[in-house]
């Protein structure tokens, strides 16, 4: 924080600094505590059960993020161009998976795409099963993470100057060419930030995954599920696997932050 030379902080300023400091401490301390409590001498051994789940988490979250980009970006684009009550409604609906308790999302997904669910029963007839499969794990994290990508991308699309698109039209570019050579390059950072957020959210998902996709090593047992089971084996293993999650989160946050800063 930089302030003008000679200016004295008034009471409100001091209060703000105390509040801000407490907020930072509150947010940073649990991660620091995790590092302090970590079983450093046996870390590598304790971490071992986390490697496969980590890999599965990366795969599942990456697939979900790609799917979210394919269907979410067009949605974000339409939302950014349209006005009116129905658009507001869609925007409101997008918030539902974000605010819903993840376990509830898992129950809802089971009702829809489970074996006895409306869509799930039809899908099973053509040989697609979501429950207890990696496809199900992708569906679970897609549900909770796609809204973040859509909201971030929409914000980026809204900032786009309409003049650029007009210019593209004048130059005779078709809609696909305009999207590829004007919209995407100019809003790249927002999309990157949204994808980073969505991916990180997907990596961290526990409730929806365990409720909908179950816990199957190598198939649906993602990193948070491994942490939970690690807890049943002993706190050291849970913390060791948690540190893997922290490392992934820090990396994802860096990518997201990069997108944000460049916006």
């Amino acid at each position: 924080m930089r302030r003008r030379a000679g200016a004295r902080l008034d009471l409100a300023g001091k209060a703000a600094i105390v509040a801000a400091g407490s907020a930072v401490l509150f947010l940073a301390f649990p991660v620091v505590a995790l590092l302090i409590q970590a079983p450093w001498s046996t870390l590598i051994r304790d971490m071992r059960p986390g490697w496969n789940p980590l890999w599965l988490s990366v795969v599942v979250s990456s697939i979900a993020t790609v799917v979210a980009l394919v269907v979410g970006l067009p949605l974000a684009w339409l939302l950014s161009r349209a006005e009116g009550r129905r658009v507001q409604l869609v925007r409101g609906l997008l918030l539902v998976p974000i605010v819903l308790p993840p376990v509830v999302s898992g129950v809802a997904l089971t009702a829809a795409y489970g074996r006895r669910g409306m869509v799930g029963a039809l899908a099973e007839r053509v040989g697609i099963v979501f429950s207890f499969t990696t496809a199900g794990a992708v569906v679970a994290v897609l549900f909770v993470s796609m809204p973040l990508l859509v909201l971030a991308a929409e914000a980026g699309f809204r900032q786009l100057e309409p003049g650029y698109l007009e210019m593209g039209k004048t130059l005779g570019l078709g809609p696909w060419q305009r999207a590829r050579s004007i919209v995407l390059p100019l809003t790249r950072n927002s999309i990157l930030a949204g994808a980073g957020l969505a991916w990180s959210r997907a990596v961290g998902e526990f409730g929806a995954t365990i409720m909908f996709a179950g816990n199957r090593p190598g198939v649906t047992q993602t990193l948070p599920l491994a942490v939970f089971l690690g807890l049943e084996r002993g706190i050291d293993q849970a913390i060791a696997i948690s540190l893997l999650a922290v490392a992934v989160a820090v990396a994802a946050a860096a990518v997201t932050r990069l997108g944000w800063a460049g916006r």
């Binding site: 089971t110 074996r115 006895r116 429950s131 207890f132 179950g214 816990n215 649906t220 939970f228 049943e232």
Partner: peptide, 21 residues
């Protein structure tokens, strides 16, 4: 050869009650 390893008795039972297993 189970398709899922459940983390509590009640969660396991819920899987069967709702038809997933």
């Amino acid at each position: 050869h189970p398709i899922s390893w459940e983390t509590s008795a009640r969660q396991l039972v819920a899987r069967i009650a709702n038809g997933e297993a």
